[in-house]
């Protein structure tokens, strides 16, 4: 067992876990945050993607010890008031745009897809379609054919640019 200090969605906590336990399982089993999903367990589908120190990672490929001292943002931490108890009052603009534009169908890839979008829009606030396709290529979706997702991302980029200007 190792004791790791990890900040999840702004809350610092100390967890005793086997050092090779997957960050995915630490989040789901130890931190009881089940928004992060397992799709393939081999870094191929992106359903388990989270932000670790601001970088997108597949949490199924991160041993717990590598998250020691890290700050992790999961889907539960994306909406503004998520740190407070209960359901957040407002969706993050990315979530809102996925919600309005058909970006989520069955919803199982959605948490990873939203975090990948978050990471993408941090890098490219006004992404081209090619940048969107590349940025989300590690997140597999079997429902949408991605078209509604591209539209959701483009709308989110507009919404975020409007907010920041």
């Amino acid at each position: 067992m190792s004791t790791i200090q990890i900040t999840i969605n702004g809350t610092s906590q100390s967890l005793d876990v086997p050092p090779m336990k997957r960050l995915l399982d630490v989040l789901r089993e130890d931190a009881h945050l089940t928004g992060t999903k397992e799709g393939c367990g081999e870094g191929e589908c992106g359903a388990c993607a989270v932000l670790m120190n601001g970088e997108l990672v597949n949490s199924c490929l991160v041993p717990a010890l590598h998250a020691d001292g890290a700050s992790v943002c999961t889907i539960e931490g994306v909406a503004p008031s998520a740190a407070a108890e209960g359901e957040p009052a407002h969706l993050h603009p990315i979530q809102q745009c996925f919600f309005e534009n058909g970006g989520a169908q069955c919803g199982i890839c959605t948490p990873g897809m939203i975090l990948a979008t978050h990471h993408l829009l941090d890098k490219y606030p006004n992404p081209t379609l090619e940048q969107i396709k590349e940025g989300l290529a590690g997140n597999l979706c079997r429902c949408t054919g991605y078209m509604r997702i591209f539209e959701s991302v483009q709308k989110a980029a507009q919404a975020l640019t409007t907010i920041s200007t």
Partner: peptide, 19 residues
Amino acid sequence: PLRKEGRAKVLGAARYIDD
């Protein structure tokens, strides 16, 4: 209109069997 269960899905709050 907005997908009925869409809000829970984009929040990661929708509970699937493994959750």
